[in-house]
Amino acid sequence: MYELRGVTKRYTRGKETVHALDGVDLTIADGDRLVIQGPTGGGKSTLLQMLGGLDRPTSGEVVLDGTDLARLSETRLTTVRSENIGFVFQSFNLIPTLTAQENVETALVPLGVKVRERRERAAEALRSVGLGERLGHLPSEMSGGQQQRVAIARALVKQPKVLLADEPTGNLDEGMRDEIMDVLDTLWKERGLTFIMVTHDSAIARKAPRLATIRKGRLTLTEKAAP
């Protein structure tokens, strides 16, 4: 469970001070599915970085399961990321020289999983996203949708509590977008993950039960009643 209290993030750009986040309060329960939307430069990615422990707030608390990520040492924060949080990026962020299976394995390296188990788990994760036949393929040998599936397998292979996705369909065409969203929704439902996604796509945003809109660093939460 996430609890954000008065999270502020300021940084300077030249002589100007930018308020990327301005007193954000937000609670995200375990197993929630939250979509974050907003204009470019509004603070969406900054909020995702706070939730993922990739950056620290200027002030405020980012509490995950009772631990304030803002106060953790870099080493502990790295451990939290490696154990609890899975990331899916817009540009897939696969290592171009590693095969699909090896890319998925990179998420298990910091956990100290033995080589054999690592390979088995990576292969299983790829099978779960429909890429059982593509284990030895390099990213350059796969389509955008397939690459994003590899990235999803990499995020989920360590069985995290939280899945953070930064515009996961931003680089995909409409057909691929639906395909990837289906994969993500299915995994969310099956695994009971807390799934937080940043998107520009209004079609996706409209379907979200909880929608956080962020403009000029301020967050507005919209909750739809369950159908």
């Binding site: 080493t75 990321r81 490696s82 390296v109 990499r154």
Partner: peptide, 16 residues
């Protein structure tokens, strides 16, 4: 940068 940033986001320590 993005490659190493990704590895760090996945939990790779700076030393690694």
């Amino acid at each position: 940068v993005r490659e190493f940033g990704t590895l760090k986001a996945l939990g790779w320590k700076s030393g690694r």
